[in-house]
Simulated assay, not measured.
Amino acid sequence: MNIMTNGSLLHSLKIQQRVIYALLMREILTRYGRNNIGFLWLIFEPLFFVSVFVVLAITYRFDNITAVPVVAFAVTGYGSLILWRNMADRSKSAISSNAALMHHKNVKVNDILFARLLLEMLGVSAAFLVLVLTFLGIGMMPPPEDIFTLLMGWLLLAWFGFAFGLCLAVPLEKIESFNRMWGYISLVLFMLSGAGFMVDWLPKPMQDFMLWIPMVHGVEMLRNGYFGSLVITYESPDLFDRC
Rank of each mutant, 00 (worst) to 15 (best):
M1L: 14
L10R: 11
H11W: 01
S12L: 00
Q16W: 05
Q17A: 14
R18L: 08
R18P: 07
I20R: 11
Y21H: 14
L24A: 15
L24S: 10
L24H: 12
M25A: 13
I28N: 06
L29Y: 13
L29H: 15
Y32R: 04
G33N: 06
N35L: 09
N36Y: 08
N36S: 14
N36V: 14
G38W: 01
F39W: 04
F39P: 01
I43G: 03
L47G: 00
F48G: 05
V50D: 01
S51D: 00
F53M: 12
V54I: 14
V55C: 03
T59P: 02
Y60H: 15
Y60I: 07
F62W: 15
F62S: 14
D63H: 10
N64W: 09
A67H: 11
V70I: 11
V70H: 07
V71N: 01
A72H: 02
A74P: 07
A74S: 14
G77W: 11
G79P: 04
G79W: 04
W84M: 10
K92W: 05
S93T: 13
A94Q: 03
S96F: 01
N98A: 03
K105F: 08
D111S: 13
I112G: 00
L113A: 05
F114K: 08
F114S: 10
A115N: 03
L118G: 11
L119K: 10
M121R: 09
L122G: 12
V124A: 07
A127I: 02
V130C: 09
L133Q: 01
T134L: 13
F135R: 02
P144A: 03
L151A: 05
L156Q: 11
A158N: 00
A158L: 01
A158C: 05
F164D: 08
F164G: 00
G165S: 09
G165W: 03
L166W: 10
L168Y: 08
L168G: 04
A169E: 06
V170N: 07
P171F: 04
E176W: 06
N179P: 05
W182K: 08
W182C: 09
Y184A: 15
S186D: 10
L187T: 15
V188T: 13
G194C: 07
G194L: 15
F197C: 12
M198H: 11
D200P: 06
P203Q: 05
M206A: 14
Q207S: 06
M210P: 10
W212Y: 15
P214M: 04
M215S: 15
L222I: 10
N224P: 03
G225Y: 03
G225F: 07
G228S: 13
S229K: 14
S229R: 13
V231W: 04
T233K: 07
Y234H: 14
Y234M: 08
D238E: 04
F240E: 04
D241V: 13
R242K: 13
R242V: 09
C243E: 07
